[in-house]
Design a binder for these strands. Structure first.
Length: 155
DNA sequence: GCCAACGTTGGC
DNA sequence: GCCAACGTTGGC
């Protein structure tokens, strides 16, 4: 069954425009076990993704993406020159993995974190909880649809 | 740039 | 296995 996710990215590192230009991208550099487990165990090709700009002005959901390749080893963990290098990663045990994500749509206007907080339909959405730092989060189908409609109806 | 919240590390 | 110290995230 199709699942729904929210994936955070800092726009000055990798923005929705970068994804639009690239068409698709490997989601490398995840170095958090919870987020890794989600990619490794729960994500499937075809799952839909809310693309979230963090550390942005304002922060919020800026568009839609789709999982287009299931998890495989994140080779940047074994690349000494990479900022994501992890000395504990080996070929037998790469530790870290990533999925590929393809561009779907950019909202005409961001659905800001502030706005997300103001809809009671979105109660329980992880990203609006205080102190929630997980960079990959599950999203309820109803929440996904609601946010999608918010982003689509903007001018 | 600040700092609260959270995850990870390492000494014991 | 506890927990203090440290590092990171990310909103403000």
């Amino acid at each position: 069954m199709k699942k729904y996710w929210l994936m955070k990215s800092e726009p000055n590192a990798y923005s929705i425009d970068d994804l639009e230009n690239d068409g698709k991208t490997p989601w490398d550099g995840i170095r958090n076990y919870q987020a890794r487990n989600i990619m490794r165990d729960d994500m499937n090709v075809g799952d839909e993704v809310l693309f979230y700009h963090s550390n942005a002005k304002p922060p919020g959901v800026i568009g839609l993406a789709k999982v287009c390749k299931e998890s495989y080893p994140d080779h940047t963990a074994r690349d000494k020159k990479s900022k994501y290098f992890d000395p504990k990663a080996t070929e037998e045990n790469p530790i870290w993995c990533m999925v590929d994500v393809e561009f779907k749509k950019k909202f005409k206007q961001i659905v800001s974190l502030d706005e997300l907080k103001n809809h009671e339909e979105l109660d329980g959405l992880m990203v609006i909880k205080r102190g929630q730092r997980l960079s990959i989060q599950p999203v309820d189908p109803e929440h996904f649809k609601f946010i999608k409609s918010l982003g689509s109806k903007k001018k």
